[in-house]
Design a protein around this nucleic acid. Structure first.
Lengths: 192, 192
DNA sequence: CGGTCTCTTGACGGAGTTCAAAGCTAGTGG
DNA sequence: CCACTAGCTTTGAACTCCGTCAAGAGACCG
């Protein structure tokens, strides 16, 4: 059940059998239906979510009332609002299931207690968040250097399966252009 | 000497006197002259830099040969390329001193040895990188929702002192618009 | 002071947005 | 299993924000 998480952890650190027991007895899996939210704007985020199945997105609603996706998460990703989580401030974001999904939801006190029992998990979370930040840097680089059309092709080439899983308007906002424009890119492709 | 770092660490965890000794004996401060690089594109990044004095920026050179600043770092910030550091891949970035600066440069093997001697440092780095990632998310939100002029005012209001420290063309590229445009914003302001 | 680095200004152009309307598609309930 | 509807995608025309280019004016630093 928890094997997705246990395997992910053991990519980065080695767990003793007793530590695996502790983890298994502290955690459980929650099913989240498509379109259901695990975080809404204005709430303080007190939970970290590890996705064992499905797909989530973090989004905002802009001035014009349009949703803009800032981040996707799929199997083996952690998703949360770290700023709200650490500073106990209201979140700026929504986090929502894009598909019927399953997560391991860990409340802050539970996590802190796990971190005391298994201190080397600190290392695991350190590595994961440093890599995630590195990926965010690359994302910003791409946003800065590529045109809208280039971003679309780049992302589609890197994630050919993923682009099938989400509606195009979500993908468009993630790549920072309009839903209409993605149609125009595709239409443009035909005519060669 | 190391007080900037020690204070920063002790914002998040508590160090024993013996641990402070270990840190002080393992670290030293390097002066970096304005415009000097601590990382160049193509190099594998094996060092983390903690800025004790001055200002750095992470930038790329785009297709047109123009520098684009992706990130600034000032006193009490860590700066490195986490992707290159973790994956041992050539970096996409340059990291350069914007002012005459001082850093604590920690090579990967030194850091790993420190983390073994003082395991709770893992927690410190975890918290720092999670907060840094949270800030990157906010940055992406701002890039997505604000116009160029709004980004300029937003950033200037939040960091009135900082905007004095760096050339405007660096600030412009950090906010993702042209150096010329920042002049036009300011000119526009006059005429009211 | 001489040269390099930085900022300003204006004309023009283009990548991508906005708006509106119509055409699809897939999920849901009857 | 069909029909209906809400959600998603497509298309085109008009528009706009901001980039690009070029040239000149400051400003800083050795």
């Amino acid at each position: 059940m928890y094997s997705v998480l246990l395997e992910h952890i053991q990519k980065f650190i080695t767990l003793e059998p007793s530590e695996i027991d502790i983890l298994e007895s502290s955690l459980d899996i929650t099913k989240i239906k498509k379109k259901q939210h695990v975080l809404q704007e204005g709430q303080v985020c007190t939970t970290m979510y590890f996705i064992t199945k499905g797909c989530f997105r973090q989004y905002i609603i802009n001035d014009k009332g349009t949703e803009q996706t800032l981040q996707f998460g799929i199997e083996s990703w952690w998703i949360t609002d770290y700023l709200s989580y650490h500073n106990h401030t209201p979140s700026n974001f929504y986090i929502q299931a894009v598909e019927n999904s399953e997560v391991i939801a860990i409340e802050q006190p539970v996590l802190e207690s796990l971190l005391i029992q298994i201190p080397k998990l600190e290392r695991y979370f350190k590595i994961v968040s440093q890599k995630t930040f590195g990926a965010a840097q690359m994302r910003i680089k791409i946003l800065f250097t590529m045109s809208a059309e280039e971003r679309y092709h780049h992302f589609s080439n890197l994630n050919p399966d993923f682009v099938q899983r989400v509606p195009q308007y979500m993908l468009a906002s993630y790549l920072d252009f309009s839903a209409e424009f993605i149609s125009k890119i595709r239409a443009g492709l035909e005519r060669k």
